[in-house]
Amino acid sequence: MNIFRFLGDISHLSAIIILLLKIWKSRSCAGISGKSQLLFAIVFTTRYLDLFTNFISFYNTSMKVVYVASSYATVWMIYSKFKATYDGNHDTFRVEFLIVPTAILSFLVNHDFTPLEILWTFSIYLESVAILPQLFMVSKTGEAETITSHYLFALGIYRTLYLFNWIWRYQFEEFFDLIAIVAGLVQTVLYCDFFYLYITKVLKGKKLSLPA
């Protein structure tokens, strides 16, 4: 464990908590893409199948349980509990264009042609594009609530910190995983536009508005 990975995990966890609290407290999922949350639930499910078979540490297991539980809770709130506030008309990204290519790619490019490894690879590829429906929705509605932009910032920063974690691990642990690194780079690049707006607008107290 290194500081970048730890801060990355904390950032990821806080993004998940921010979103849960936003929906639960405001009893509304307005402006939130249910499709992205569905994709995240798939990402965690396919990545943590070894949750019960491969014990790494208490920290690792507990974080995985929290991620999986909270992602399902978020999906449940959006599509069930508060579905009346779900803005389906603006959440129109075709997720099959994300799931099918990443699934095919995980069969073609992976470290090991075994079910667990292919599912892990699929989850890595899917996670790198899972935020697209949410970013698409923000661009369609033309703006996002401030709390939603904090959620997106924390979520984007987590994988950016993981990039530093991989530099660190390459340097000091001779550890190197090209699949995770390339997907992490793609994921971070997708946030660049949002990072720019967040830093130039939200941090100055303005509302986040994308050029529609």
Binding site: R5, D50, N54, I56, S57, H111, Y162, D177, A180
Partner: peptide
Amino acid sequence: KRGNCHKDEL
């Protein structure tokens, strides 16, 4: 080939 060491990341 990456060993199982990798699976220590979330």
